[in-house]
Write a protein that binds this DNA or RNA. Structure first.
Lengths: 198, 198
DNA sequence: GTCTATATTTCGATAGAC
DNA sequence: GTCTATCGAAATATAGAC
């Protein structure tokens, strides 16, 4: 995506991203815990110890991938204005999120399949602030006493459809064109978030 | 929940179930990989090695919990007749599944949060036969070329709602009465699975 | 920037006493 | 049925050569 850098020390600097790409695949397939640094390194053609030049430790690789996802979601939130307690805006937000999901499907899947590891990451680091923003906005709506139960359930169901879509796009319906799948998912989200009297 | 048993040697025999109860909690909270046998044993008041009297190894504890869930879903499938490619029957099936989910919520959550470990379990053992039945029936529908894309997506979305409901019931909306939540979830599933022209 | 070699820790698992 | 003691394997991480 980024333009070619100066060819001298260019391949390096990219190594960090290549490590993250490999880790993303392995963390998604086998899970974070079952993926060893040895596996990541061997798939890249060098040894385990070399990873420690690019990352202080294993959890920092997971953290870097977390930031990747964070950046994607943050950008999406800026365009749509963020999630709040007004249900009439949720459809637009999910429309936008579905686009991002199909583009960064593996990132979503990896996050979903390693939820336990991410939660521990937030506890280990003093990452209690800025709790992933989108997820924090999510929880804020669910805690809002002025939001009816029905809407809270529907919001969570829409998130369920969102994640189910990511799984579907990567596995069982991997051969379906993205835009076609996106249309079906958007349609499903509309039905889930439909106002009962509006 | 169960009445007090005879106080003599009664506590034993129950130990296996108590181990599974503790493991279910820890596997759900921290994940299977991050839960050590030492933790399970200490929470029960004895040491790591004592676990090996009740189970051949760690993965057999996970396997036993898998059978617990399998029994629940199997019973539900027998009552509703099983999942096939006929979309008009899906609503009834999910109605039934939602009841089971709210009763055995932790079991569903644990399975969802440790999907990677369960998949590896199926590979390690020659468990290729009877691939969890419900999930296999699920995949069969998704592979059926006679089922329209729309219905496949909707079926997966209903599953997404199902799992989202399990998370909701255990965390953010844990204080909402079960039957009230069940009603909302059933309503949401109906909207997801609604026939466009029926 | 990648390597070898090694330190340190933790875990799953076994053997055998009680 | 639960214990102590211990083994062996594998993983993360460090130190330092090249």
């Amino acid at each position: 995506m980024s333009v070619q850098e100066a060819p001298t020390a260019a391949v390096s600097g990219d190594t960090r991203e290549r490590i993250l790409d490999v880790a993303l695949d392995l963390f998604t397939e086998k899970g974070y815990d079952k993926t060893s640094l040895r596996e990541i390194a061997e798939q890249l053609g060098f040894t385990k110890a070399a990873l420690y030049y690019h990352f202080p430790g294993k959890k920092d690789i997971l953290l870097a991938l977390h930031y990747r996802l964070h950046a994607v979601l943050e950008a999406s939130m800026e365009e749509t204005g963020g999630l709040d307690s007004d249900p009439s805006r949720w459809v637009d937000i999910f429309d936008h999120l579905i686009d991002q999901m199909l583009t960064h499907r593996k990132l979503i899947l990896m996050h979903d399949r390693n939820r336990a590891s991410f939660e521990q990451l937030h506890h280990d680091l003093d990452h209690q602030n800025a709790h992933d923003d989108l997820e924090e906005q999510f929880r804020r709506v669910l805690r809002d006493v002025d939001v009816p139960l029905r809407d809270k359930v529907r919001l969570t169901c829409a998130q369920g459809v969102f994640i189910a879509g990511a799984v579907l796009a990567g596995e069982e319906l991997a051969d379906v064109p993205s835009d076609q799948l996106a249309g079906e998912l958007r349609s499903a989200v509309r039905d889930v978030l439909a106002q009962p009297d509006g």
